[in-house]
Design a protein around this nucleic acid. Sequence first.
RNA 1: GGGCUCAUAGCUCAGUUGGUUAGAGCGUUGCGUUGACAUCGCAAAGGUCUGAGGUUCAAGUCCUCAUGGGCCCACCA
Length: 914
Amino acid sequence: MIELPKTYSPAEVEDRWYKDWEEKKLFAARNNPAKKPFCIVIPPPNVTGILHMGHALNNTIQDILIRYHRMKGEEALWMPGTDHAGIATQNVVEKSIAKQGLKRQDLGREKFLERVWEWKEQYGSTIIRQLKKLGSSCDWDRTRFTMDEAYSDAVKEVFVRLYEKGLIYQGSYIINWCPRCQTALADEEAPHRELDGHLYYLKYPCKDDPEKFVVVATTRPETMLGDTAVAVNPKDSRYRKLIGKTLVLPLVNREIPIIADAVVDKKFGTGAVKVTPAHDPNDYAMGKKHGLEFVNVMRPDASMNENAGDYKEMDRFEAREVIIEDLKEQGLLEKIEPHRLSAGHCYRCHTIIEPYLSKQWFVNMKPLAKPAIRAVKDGHIKFHPARWKKVYLNWMENIQDWCISRQIWWGHRIPVYYCRACLSQGPSLSESINRQGKGTVPERVAHGVIVSKVKPEKCPVCGSNDIYQDEDVLDTWFSSWLWPFATFGWPFGSGTDATTPGHKFSEKDLRYFYPTSTLVTAQEIIFFWVARMIMAGFEFMGDIPFRDVYIHGTVRDIEGKKMSKSLGNVIDPLEIINEYGTDALRVSIIMITSQGQDVFLSKERFEQGRNFANKIWNAARFVMLNLDPGVIKTDLCEYFKKEDLDITNRWILSRFYSTLKNLNKDLDGFKFNEAANLLYHFFWHEFCDWYLEMIKQDIASPRNQVVMYKILEKFLRALHPFMPFITEEIWQKLHPGSESIMTKPWPHVQEQIIEKRTEQKMEMFFEVVTGIRNMRAEVEIPPHLEIRAIIFCSTRANADMIRPLSAHIKKLCKVSDLDLQLEYRHQKSTLTTLVHGLHLVIPLEGVVDIENQVRKLDEKIKKADQDITAKERTLANSDFLARAPAEIVEKEQTKLADLRQLLTKLKAVRHAFD
RNA sequence: GGGCUCAUAGCUCAGUUGGUUAGAGCGUUGCGUUGACAUCGCAAAGGUCUGAGGUUCAAGUCCUCAUGGGCCCACCA
């Protein structure tokens, strides 16, 4: 007999075992040619990250996969790390120094970066600690950070290689500019959101005849200060004769031409569009095509600049108001209409993006996309669920060049150096603009530009040592996209890893684990990360980075809103862990997350997991209290072969292996919720509710001992990936001094033990038990009163099936005397139920106080009768029908129908007493 | 404008290639507590699977259309 404490205390157990696993290095994986590799690279959380439910879901799934494959005997590596998250982290540190009244400019670049590193040292491991609380079995000795020295080396290497290949170029284009973060953003970082805005109709006077106007419609009137043309469709008869004429731009009095361009939609607005080449991507294209002037009217913070004349220094939205007022005064505002428009928003601070002309670095993506498209089309990389394949391909096939330079300080500084002397002889910015553009080969600014991993001593062209580095840093994703191989130390030039003491990179590891196996991530990040990793994988490793991509849903609150701090609807995983335990958190969130669907959470939903943990604990406790430890050594398959097992034990064994078989299928098919539900249902309702209840009366018998132990032991192993802590704790109580359960092999499906026929027979037996219980409840037989029962079996086969189970029927139904007969004979004062051709009969005489029961029934029948009559009367009343609200009438009708049904049932029971 | 997704019990959702009587958790109702577990057990009530067509021996499941939510992408000023 083994004792287990009466209650399970997750907090103490979890911390103890996690520490033990870590100390014993059980999460470590190395290249081991004797084993099949299985590798997951973690989606690196931001260093600024605080664990939220999205992480909990994401990492639980990964841990389940890793532990499952590890137990299956594969060399399972879960590669951990964090992302420096350029803009996000910079914002956090800026906020923190703002409390001291400081801006980053006050500190200067170097001092500010020191502050960021300090911040990182202090808080950067928070998220890692929290991942450990989740039970994540990452190989922590390999933990990477995207700003590690070795990792940074990979980033520079990649930049240089792409530049030398002609895939990186610099140029001036309209990019997404966040005026708050004051940096360029990639298209993906500026998602469009709908806004309620206005369409302003502005009148631009003709130069020849100031009494005549061309009316243009715009949603951003402040940009009119930068207009350098008005465009119309060449086929638009309203304007045809005006093409080539000149207008005078109000407020600034600049003369601007009317040009013709087929891009203009005749049906939108007035059919005439103002052209602002420096503030709109379409206008930019037109500007180049028609050789227009580029007038930038804003500063980087989106306040107006000197080109804006009187509006200088106003914020863009303030300028909008004032300009509209001024135009109105001058009679140049025709009208304002409400208009729904969509505008880009900064994905970090949600400020409305300003399309802004500036000089940035870009990656030409089309050549990189090609093999990445093929790989998915050919099925070398599979998305789960498969529908994401379409989303991926659609994006990849329309891929745009990637703006990778950011005007912030925290990040990998662009490895580009300029020779001041050579540069001064290069083309000016405006010249360069006019020579570039979509559809043409982008200019590679080669003159005075040196791209190199290390700072050159002197200019290779003119020998000058007046050399300075580009001020910008790279997009965070320009480092993240290398994650599946840069984390292994690629490109192995320097050979050492200065950032993680004691850890040495090995190219062998990369060769062994790459391509990795499965990537587990959320839908929001497919373009940012997944697609780009696939491209980088091909470009730098010549192969796919992973085979399967599992996309899980987004965690939302119970109303379907995204969880966010600002909405205050966050459920903190750590709070759930404190209250219910990590295992409860993990299994709950897995059970309610169906493949790829968003997850709607409320705190109560974690009770299910907590209750399950409690159930497991108590069942294990029960088994152990009654267990003879001698049976532990029994080999189940041998035992099964030799012993003449009874149907109950055959059934539970069969059910276990059926469940296991389906479990394997679900895990291999990324159906984690179904997998967890299988285990839950098997354990609670089959093992506990039926099996343990049945064997209780003969628990000491060898066959019950062996089977209950074996089922528990194998179940614990199968459950371990989902609930690692409680399974370990019970495992260790069962096998004191044993190695961790996580090192034990995954149970093997024993096909010969699965007996469908046995399962069916038991199903029938359950229905018999339920049938008798129902009858007892029906006539209110006191729970503890033992009764007589007769089962008319109708066939000998049925009788033979039921006979060995009669003891169970007696026990489970409180039957003292069970009579099995073949032919059915009607008996007086009995209650009968038909189940699969079996007549279940319980005599009522002597069991129920028949007189009393009949009286009660008659009373109920009488009451129901009266109620029905009353309702019928109400419903026959034409005044009621005419005056009562329809819903009330409907309610009354429903009530009547219910009453009639009740009456029928009562009469049937009453009939049994005749 | 293009695409995806959802609609099943009071609530939140499962339901893998079509196949007997559509499931779970929570909630509701009744009964039950002298040792595994009240974080429990036994039982009950509750569904014309959003609507309309179609394919089929057979449709919650496949097809078409409609209605109503959610999401993504796209340069409509």
